[in-house]
Amino acid sequence: MFQCKDVAEEASNYLEGDLPIRKRLGLFLHLLVCSCCRNYLQQLRQTISTVATLRPTEEDATDTKALAEKLRTLSESKPR
């Protein structure tokens, strides 16, 4: 029988359908009796859904060459 710690370890695999049938069944049976783990799984599903919906866009205007040169200059000027 699965324990709560097992659910936490296997939750992602469970949601992605990557668990062998025996483990999937064991986890399902645990979820039938454990409301805390059901809540945890529901929160995980909601988080995944929210992140997938929002998909923040990154606007990167950083001049990486200038930044690398500045870091190189700083590292060379520090006493070792």
Rank of each mutant, 00 (worst) to 15 (best):
residue 76 E to F: 08
residue 34 C to W: 05
residue 2 F to V: 11
residue 50 T to P: 00
residue 41 L to G: 01
residue 6 D to C: 01
residue 68 A to Q: 10
residue 63 D to F: 06
residue 52 A to V: 00
residue 42 Q to H: 10
residue 77 S to P: 00
residue 8 A to L: 15
residue 18 D to T: 01
residue 12 S to E: 08
residue 6 D to T: 06
residue 39 N to Q: 12
residue 73 T to R: 15
residue 17 G to Y: 01
residue 56 P to S: 06
residue 50 T to K: 09
residue 70 K to N: 13
residue 75 S to F: 04
residue 78 K to E: 08
residue 23 K to F: 02
residue 80 R to Y: 15
residue 28 F to Q: 14
residue 18 D to F: 05
residue 26 G to M: 07
residue 56 P to G: 04
residue 58 E to N: 04
residue 50 T to E: 07
residue 25 L to A: 11
residue 77 S to R: 11
residue 52 A to N: 08
residue 9 E to W: 06
residue 31 L to Y: 03
residue 78 K to R: 13
residue 78 K to L: 14
residue 29 L to I: 09
residue 30 H to K: 02
residue 43 Q to R: 07
residue 28 F to Y: 11
residue 21 I to W: 00
residue 56 P to W: 02
residue 6 D to Q: 09
residue 23 K to P: 00
residue 24 R to Q: 09
residue 25 L to Q: 11
residue 16 E to R: 10
residue 38 R to V: 00
residue 48 I to A: 14
residue 58 E to A: 15
residue 68 A to K: 13
residue 30 H to G: 03
residue 78 K to C: 10
residue 45 R to W: 05
residue 50 T to I: 11
residue 62 T to Q: 13
residue 79 P to Y: 01
residue 80 R to W: 13
residue 46 Q to N: 11
residue 70 K to L: 14
residue 23 K to D: 02
residue 35 S to H: 09
residue 72 R to S: 11
residue 65 K to D: 05
residue 7 V to G: 02
residue 48 I to K: 10
residue 7 V to Y: 01
residue 47 T to C: 09
residue 45 R to G: 01
residue 63 D to I: 09
residue 47 T to Y: 11
residue 80 R to I: 14
residue 71 L to K: 12
residue 10 E to Y: 11
residue 64 T to H: 15
residue 72 R to K: 14
residue 33 V to D: 07
residue 18 D to V: 00
residue 10 E to R: 08
residue 52 A to W: 01
residue 44 L to N: 01
residue 80 R to E: 14
residue 69 E to S: 13
residue 34 C to S: 10
residue 47 T to K: 15
residue 73 T to W: 13
residue 70 K to C: 10
residue 60 D to W: 02
residue 7 V to I: 15
residue 67 L to F: 13
residue 47 T to R: 12
residue 73 T to S: 12
residue 44 L to D: 02
residue 53 T to N: 11
residue 68 A to H: 06
residue 77 S to Y: 10
residue 18 D to A: 08
residue 71 L to N: 12
residue 20 P to M: 08
residue 54 L to N: 07
residue 13 N to Y: 00
residue 10 E to V: 04
residue 50 T to S: 10
